[in-house]
């Protein structure tokens, strides 16, 4: 099993401890606090993810052939969502990021956020992370 899948399962396990939405949201907000924050200088228009009602910035850098993501958001729930994504995808090889699915979002009870019309732009975030992976993969090739 690849690393991303392992982390995703770990996250699913953690969320399975909660039996109502409120605890899940509280935990997500908690996870938002551990988000590796993007440096202020990268909080620029180009790093802003479109399609979110709140602002989300994501930055990526290649370190030892692995992609390291940092991010931030002005909304706390969105920050939690992006933290969950980054926990799964950061420090991974671009090719693995490209192969990874996001089924785990559904499994942790946040399926509603996966709808493309949803204003939080989770779908746009995933797309953006994959775009970075494509760009850096080309560099590595």
């Amino acid at each position: 099993m690849n690393k991303i899948k392992e982390i995703q399962e770990e996250i699913v396990d953690e969320f399975s401890m909660f039996d109502d939405w409120m605890q899940r949201y509280e935990y997500m907000i908690e996870l938002g606090k551990s988000l590796p924050l993007i440096e202020e200088k990268y909080k620029v228009e180009e790093n802003l993810i479109k399609g979110c009602q709140s602002k989300v910035w994501v930055h990526a850098e290649l370190e030892d052939e692995k992609l390291v993501f940092t991010a931030d958001s002005d909304a706390i729930i969105t920050k939690g969502i992006v933290a969950i994504l980054i926990r799964a995808f950061s420090n991974q090889h671009p090719s693995e990021i490209l192969e990874a699915d996001t089924q785990f979002i559904d499994e942790i009870g946040l399926k509603e956020h996966l709808s493309p019309t949803r204003a939080n732009g989770l779908v746009s975030m995933i797309k953006q992370l994959k775009m970075y992976a494509i760009a850096y993969q080309t560099q590595l090739d």
């Binding site: 949201y25 009602q53 709140s54 002005d74 909304a75 706390i76 729930i77 969105t78 204003a119 939080n120």
Partner: peptide, 10 residues
């Protein structure tokens, strides 16, 4: 200190 989106979601 709270984003309107967060309030709306909850």
């Amino acid at each position: 200190g709270i984003h309107p989106y967060d309030i709306g979601t909850i």
